[in-house]
Amino acid sequence: MELMPYIVKERPDTGLFNAKLGIWLFLSSEVMLFGALFSAYVLLRTGAPHWPHGSSILNVPIGAFNTVVLIASSVTMVFSWAALKENKFGKFKLNLGLTILLAFVFLIVKAIEYGAKFEHHLYPKTSTFLAIYFTLTALHALHVIGGIVVNGYFWGPGARMWQAEPERFVNRIEIAGIYWHFVDLVWIFLFPTLYLL
């Protein structure tokens, strides 16, 4: 007995293949991670005598632009999966490439934002608001970098699997996509919380 079952096909009674369950379990722990930081934000803000309005320190148009960038990258990600389902490998490459590109755009914009803050001598130690802002966005940026690494692998060397085991490769892209959409989803909550409130 040497074979690992349900790598490609779903297990009949659960309706899931292993990695599908695995990624949702991972995301559950991620929800608790960001959830705990989000709780910390709520409590620090509640306990604070005064708390700055996000837009008085942060640049809302840039934040909104980055939101659009991430949403767009989510769309291209799901298109790349759909392209594989349609058996169009070229279209897959294009869309996944766009996803990675947009992720880089997001990071560059973020870096410019950070740089602008540091120029004005606004550091994590300056205030609790800035501390939680830098912590949440930096942790999110680490997740973006993680996504770039994963997607970059599937765009480059990992794509070879498409020839040998297409079905398994489609699963992998779906899993990578679910992770990437989660990164998008986190930002969808971070943006209004930090910038608009």
Binding site: V78, I178, D184, L185, F189, T193
Partner: peptide
């Protein structure tokens, strides 16, 4: 944000 998040979760994440 809740509505947006649900849209992403329901459709993009299937």
């Amino acid at each position: 944000a809740m509505v947006k998040g649900s849209l992403v979760a329901c459709f993009f994440m299937h």
